[in-house]
Computed example of a mutant assay.
Amino acid sequence: MMGNERHGLIGVIGSDLLRHAKIPVILLVAVLVSAVLVVTTTHETRRLTAQREQLVLERDALDIEWRNLILEENALGDHSRVERIATEKLKMQHVDPAQENIVVQQ
């Protein structure tokens, strides 16, 4: 007799869905998986975009520092500046090559 059999509600619903509604269940699972993948992909895209922005800012800062270092190198390597420091601080004098031979020979 069927009246004495006890079936759980979830078991009855599950077996009924599998027996009569396979395509809708498959579509429901596909939609849920798709939704989770969309959320995961969106999150990863936003994280990578923020990381890229941070790297672009770092690159710009390093670019500015590089330009400043080149300007500083050019300023420190300027011949007139080197000559001025040599004459003022080190008390060096510019020697004429013609006079140098006379001084050395004496």
Rank of each mutant, 00 (worst) to 15 (best):
1 M>K: 09
1 M>F: 10
2 M>P: 13
3 G>S: 15
4 N>D: 15
4 N>T: 12
6 R>H: 09
6 R>I: 10
7 H>V: 14
9 L>P: 05
10 I>Y: 06
12 V>T: 14
13 I>H: 04
13 I>A: 12
13 I>Y: 01
13 I>K: 04
13 I>F: 03
14 G>E: 15
14 G>I: 08
15 S>K: 09
15 S>H: 08
15 S>Y: 10
16 D>R: 12
17 L>W: 05
19 R>A: 13
21 A>D: 08
21 A>N: 11
22 K>Q: 13
23 I>H: 10
23 I>G: 05
23 I>A: 11
24 P>C: 08
26 I>P: 00
26 I>K: 08
26 I>W: 02
27 L>S: 12
28 L>F: 13
29 V>G: 10
30 A>W: 07
30 A>Q: 09
31 V>I: 13
31 V>F: 07
31 V>M: 05
32 L>Y: 03
32 L>W: 08
33 V>D: 12
34 S>R: 05
35 A>D: 07
36 V>Q: 11
36 V>W: 15
38 V>C: 06
39 V>F: 11
39 V>C: 02
40 T>D: 12
42 T>A: 10
43 H>C: 09
44 E>T: 15
45 T>W: 13
45 T>M: 10
46 R>Q: 13
49 T>N: 10
49 T>G: 06
49 T>R: 10
49 T>Q: 13
51 Q>Y: 02
51 Q>R: 07
51 Q>W: 01
52 R>T: 05
52 R>V: 04
53 E>A: 10
53 E>Y: 01
53 E>F: 03
55 L>H: 14
55 L>T: 08
57 L>S: 08
58 E>P: 00
58 E>Q: 14
59 R>Q: 09
60 D>Y: 01
60 D>E: 11
61 A>C: 00
61 A>W: 00
63 D>S: 13
63 D>P: 00
64 I>P: 00
64 I>S: 02
65 E>W: 07
66 W>C: 03
67 R>N: 14
68 N>C: 03
68 N>T: 02
68 N>D: 13
68 N>R: 11
69 L>M: 15
73 E>K: 09
74 N>H: 06
75 A>L: 02
75 A>E: 08
76 L>A: 01
77 G>E: 05
77 G>Q: 02
77 G>R: 03
77 G>M: 04
78 D>S: 01
79 H>R: 06
80 S>T: 15
81 R>G: 00
82 V>A: 09
84 R>I: 02
84 R>S: 10
84 R>L: 06
85 I>M: 02
87 T>G: 01
87 T>V: 05
87 T>N: 09
90 L>P: 00
92 M>S: 07
94 H>A: 13
95 V>F: 10
95 V>D: 07
95 V>E: 10
96 D>E: 15
98 A>Y: 12
99 Q>D: 11
100 E>I: 03
100 E>P: 00
100 E>Y: 07
101 N>C: 11
103 V>Y: 11
104 V>F: 11
106 Q>F: 06
106 Q>H: 06
